[in-house]
Nucleic acid binder design. Structure first.
Lengths: 219, 219
DNA sequence: ATACTATTTGAATCCTTCTTCAAAAGAGCC
DNA sequence: GGCTCTTTTGAAGAAGGATTCAAATAGTAT
């Protein structure tokens, strides 16, 4: 028997398991048994915590989305320079590889949004939040005189998020020529035009986020 | 009994039915019975033509993709002016509404591409073809002196297709602020910077494609 | 008309999944 | 250690989908 756990803890596990099962089988195709197996439990145990599988799937998508967003925010929180911040932000919106589960979950969500209003709302909310995030960076850069925006910040921010999204799909679909590096460069090409800043690409992402004020060593 | 048809004809019907069923239920979740019902047949009849449902689903996706691409090509074939051609092309890559089944099928494909290599290839192929299509337009515009490209045509073309893709998802997910018109304007904003051309937005798409040489009436 | 053949149906069978629930088993408490 | 409450299992039953195939049917050819 699987080690017994407390309700909240187990529910957390189940959300994680659901995430994995969704990525593997698809949101609309995943079976209760598959989620149970991913969690190392039987279907009965899953049902004990989530009498309706759809509730669990929704929570999994919701959690995945929040995680994706929080992770990005954390990665850029300590960066003061708007140009560097923009570069890192662009990077953090792309999958690290075709097997990046966080992004694959979002792609999954995109596929289902057309036929599920709740998922559609979730995805739209994420998009809008990301747009706002970019807008802040752009406006800050402009205020500091670093950026000369080619148009209003909302338009640029919307396009930046759109580009990220789209290249996420390309990378997840294993485009033979467009990987994370190439995608970042393509987006940067737009970002340079839009900000009037040279935006040199960031070095390999550091293991830990740098403390504010320290400079990345040149390479 | 459903009216009997010839093999090729019925297979065509089935591909259409599968398309509809996929959009409604999801590529990975759709059941044989649902496809059969969409075609107005029984599951046995479907199996008679496609012993393996996956083959049918693949053909449906393939056909949907080809159709989408062909339709675009047809819409722009008769347009000589590169600027107008670019504007119309951008429009034709966006869903006409959140219920545009052609685009919804492609979104579906994007969701499944992460876990199905064949679908991934299909989607990648479409992307590359669209990039080439845009490249032709851009290069032609440059050769004629109409465009002053901000960078190499491949980069611009890749970004244009990426923007289209992404806004397709936004529209299908019913973003409350971004519909076909707004998306077109956002993409045009980028296209203007990239081509150095004012690219005034096209009037409402005409019922029939205009013959080459005729001018759209002003409004 | 008739016969022929390709297509479609519908019923039977087999499988898989969902759902329910009594019983088992861990975890915490006294 | 024994008691209690919560969590988990496993079995059983219900529901539905996939697959197979003989029989029916509708076009097509003669």
């Amino acid at each position: 028997m699987a080690t017994r756990k407390r309700k909240t803890e187990r529910r957390q596990d189940l959300i994680e398991a659901a995430r994995r099962a969704i990525v593997q089988y698809g949101t609309d195709a995943v079976h209760l048994n598959q989620v149970a197996e991913a969690a190392g439990l039987t279907s009965g145990a899953v049902l004990y915590h989530y009498p309706d599988l759809n509730d669990l799937l929704l929570e999994a998508h919701h959690a995945g989305m929040e995680r994706f967003y929080d992770l990005r925010m954390k990665k850029i929180a300590s960066i003061a320079d708007p140009a560097e911040k923009l570069v890192v932000t662009i990077r953090s919106g792309l999958p690290s590889s075709p097997d990046d589960d966080d992004v694959r979950l979002l792609c999954e969500l995109g596929g289902s949004a057309g036929r599920n209003r709740v998922y559609a709302t979730l995805l739209t909310t994420l998009y809008d939040r990301q747009v706002t995030m970019y807008q802040m960076i752009l406006e800050t850069g402009r205020a500091q005189g670093a950026f000369t925006l080619s148009g209003d910040s909302q338009t640029i921010a919307r396009n930046l998020v759109a580009l990220e999204d789209a290249y996420g799909y390309r990378i997840v679909a294993r485009h033979p020529l467009i990987g994370p590096d190439e995608a970042a460069e393509l987006i940067l090409d737009y970002a340079r035009q839009a900000t009037g800043h040279p935006l040199r690409p960031a070095p390999e992402p550091a293991r830990k986020p740098r403390a504010a004020g320290t400079t990345p060593k040149a390479r």
